[in-house]
Design a protein around this nucleic acid. Structure first.
Lengths: 215, 215
DNA sequence: CGTTGAGTTGACCATCGTCAACAGGAGTGG
DNA sequence: CCACTCCTGTTGACGATGGTCAACTCAACG
């Protein structure tokens, strides 16, 4: 569990005593935007969609949580976004209060938390570049390369990457419509840069995708 | 200085001994993306543009720092973005090492840092919504309302808000071109929602702008 | 004055969104 | 077992939003 990389065995067991492990099925909600944040979570398996809604129903996916990811880094009073399960998910839950107390007792846990939050911030800023200054094709390529890197940390490097989210989710993450996502994925497949497989893609021409995605 | 809200007088004077105050003129660089981050900064007066560049020259402005803002919240090794002065700027500089040592001695300073970083993350996610899911007009309105709120903390609420940045900067912040920013500002002015004044705007129809910007 | 850079405006156009139709698979109920 | 629905994904035709290119104004500054 990546938040705990900083903890010694005693601290780990203290944390474990606070943990509550549970499962939810696909499409179930972990928590919702603007509700009081009672808990923080560590995802053990499965994938989670994190998103914000506008009053008129438009949606912005702000991220996807994969195994190992921590939700609630900010320790804020209210959830900044909604989270629901894309697949069946197992997660490790802590009451925010318990976790906050634990932080007060273990300063290096706070440092760890802060460093993870800083990394999130950096990812969010990269996403701002993608949303603001890239074409649809570049967005797709960046998305695939980014996800590949994240899956590599979870399950090792591979040219086949799982896509537990729908085209709609990808569109709402990249600021595109479903149709545009679908069209461009098909085009990349036609041009032999990728192969579309059930619930994922196989990357054929990684150099080309890297070129499209480059910083 | 907002990072220091958490400090007692002894700690404040310790921090002050580490501080180096300085000024730069407009257009000068505070630090550049990807360079090793030797210092962290607190802006005392003036405004700063924070941005990332793509290899081909496209630019994404990730934020504007106003008086009171802290740069280097993440305490990372390398700068995630470049920063340069929009106006003449006075800032308070700390060596990252000194500041890091100070953090180790004062845990509540770290909590403060973490809470500021979390707030930044939340702003970044709001910006993702703006970039991904709003029309050009909504983007401009959101920008003006957001900036208004931030200036209010610095210099009190006012219907006239300073715009120290160029139209190009605004465009690069919102994922638009200069021309589009210019056209829409002119249109909002023609429709009596705003008045364009030298280096700023006066907001006339705030309810309308709020409606355009609403979450 | 001449130059430079910001801002504005117009004409035109491309990318991507909209709307619509359809295919295929999963789940459901007769 | 089949018909039916629902959902996701795909594809096409069309159009609008916002980008591109170009020209011009104006203020600042030497």
């Amino acid at each position: 569990m990546s938040v705990c990389a900083a903890l010694d065995p005693d601290e780990l067991s203290a944390l474990n005593r606070l943990a509550h492990t549970f499962c939810v099925n696909a499409k179930q909600t972990l928590f919702e935007q603007d509700e009081p944040a009672g808990n923080v979570y560590n995802i053990t398996s499965g994938s989670v969609r994190l998103y914000k809604l506008l009053p008129d129903g438009r949606r912005q996916v702000v991220g996807f949580a994969l195994p190992g990811d921590f939700l609630g880094l900010s320790m804020a009073e209210k959830n900044a976004f909604s989270a629901d399960a894309l697949t069946s998910v197992t997660a490790c839950q802590f009451s925010r209060q318990d976790f906050s107390d634990m932080i007060d007792k273990t300063p290096h846990l706070l440092r760890r938390l802060h460093s993870l939050a800083s990394h999130e911030l950096s990812l969010a800023q990269d996403q701002m570049v993608i949303l603001g200054r890239r074409t649809a094709e570049e967005k797709i390529a960046s998305f695939l390369m980014g996800l590949r890197k994240r899956w590599a940390k979870v399950s090792g490097a591979s040219v086949t990457i799982p896509l537990p989210m729908t085209r709609q989710d990808i569109g709402d993450f990249l600021g595109l419509t479903v149709e545009t996502v679908s069209r461009l994925m098909t085009r990349l497949a036609r041009e032999k840069a990728i192969v579309i497989v059930p619930d994922g893609v196989r990357l054929l021409d990684i150099p080309r995708l890297e070129r499209l995605a480059e910083t």
